[in-house]
Amino acid sequence: MAEITPSPAPSPVPATRQKLSVFEPLDARIKELTSSQAELLGRIQNLKQEVQKWRSNVEAQSKTLKTELLDTKESLGSEVLHLKSDIKEIRSAVQEEKARFKAPFRNLEESNDET
């Protein structure tokens, strides 16, 4: 009779390997979250840069508009003073003409009253 040699028993999977296999999905998830976090940080940095550029543009535009408004205000103030001066001249001219126009009638009334 031939001797039957027992086949080697399957070697059991080391316990540490089983424990590590439990963490593999977690490791993959952590890598995914880390890459998502990096992507979000990059997007946030881009948005910050865009906001800074936008803010700079708005500040530059507001300075320009403020300067233009001040110039316009000064110009309008000057024009208003000029118009006030013109109106005073016109009023005095009208008063003079009124006085000249009424003078002959006063003289006529006075002469009529005397007669």
Rank of each mutant, 00 (worst) to 15 (best):
66 K>V: 14
30 I>E: 00
71 D>Q: 09
63 K>C: 01
13 V>T: 04
71 D>Y: 05
51 V>D: 13
82 H>A: 15
43 R>A: 03
106 R>E: 12
110 E>R: 03
3 E>K: 14
84 K>M: 02
31 K>W: 06
94 V>F: 03
59 E>C: 10
98 K>R: 15
45 Q>H: 08
108 L>M: 05
44 I>S: 02
23 F>Q: 09
92 S>C: 10
34 T>N: 08
91 R>H: 05
80 V>C: 04
76 L>S: 10
99 A>S: 15
51 V>F: 07
46 N>H: 12
49 Q>A: 05
75 S>K: 09
26 L>K: 08
28 A>I: 03
29 R>G: 02
110 E>A: 13
67 T>H: 13
87 I>Y: 01
97 E>T: 08
107 N>V: 10
108 L>H: 00
60 A>V: 01
36 S>L: 12
82 H>S: 14
70 L>P: 08
96 E>K: 10
71 D>G: 12
96 E>V: 09
8 P>D: 10
74 E>R: 13
3 E>D: 15
72 T>M: 13
93 A>K: 01
1 M>I: 06
113 D>L: 06
43 R>H: 09
53 K>C: 08
1 M>F: 05
38 A>M: 03
72 T>Q: 14
95 Q>I: 03
104 P>E: 01
35 S>C: 11
43 R>S: 05
105 F>G: 01
5 T>W: 11
79 E>Q: 12
47 L>F: 06
31 K>S: 01
86 D>Y: 05
60 A>S: 13
49 Q>G: 04
17 R>H: 12
77 G>L: 01
113 D>K: 02
13 V>W: 02
62 S>F: 13
86 D>V: 01
14 P>M: 07
111 S>M: 03
2 A>S: 13
27 D>R: 14
35 S>P: 00
98 K>A: 15
63 K>I: 02
33 L>M: 09
32 E>P: 00
78 S>I: 05
28 A>E: 06
23 F>V: 02
51 V>P: 03
96 E>M: 04
18 Q>S: 15
110 E>M: 08
92 S>F: 06
26 L>H: 07
68 E>A: 11
63 K>R: 12
107 N>P: 00
66 K>R: 12
35 S>Y: 04
96 E>W: 00
92 S>T: 11
80 V>F: 05
60 A>Q: 10
84 K>F: 11
81 L>T: 10
7 S>F: 11
83 L>E: 13
110 E>N: 03
51 V>R: 14
85 S>E: 09
42 G>W: 00
42 G>S: 04
28 A>T: 06
5 T>R: 11
112 N>M: 12
62 S>G: 09
55 R>Q: 08
95 Q>G: 09
12 P>G: 02
82 H>C: 13
53 K>D: 12
22 V>H: 11
28 A>D: 08
56 S>A: 11
7 S>G: 07
9 A>R: 13
44 I>A: 09
72 T>I: 08
29 R>C: 03
19 K>Y: 07
23 F>L: 15
68 E>P: 06
65 L>W: 06
31 K>E: 02
48 K>S: 10
29 R>E: 11
21 S>T: 15
59 E>P: 00
35 S>L: 12
57 N>I: 07
55 R>G: 05
56 S>P: 01
106 R>V: 10
97 E>W: 05
68 E>D: 13
99 A>E: 14
5 T>G: 07
44 I>G: 01
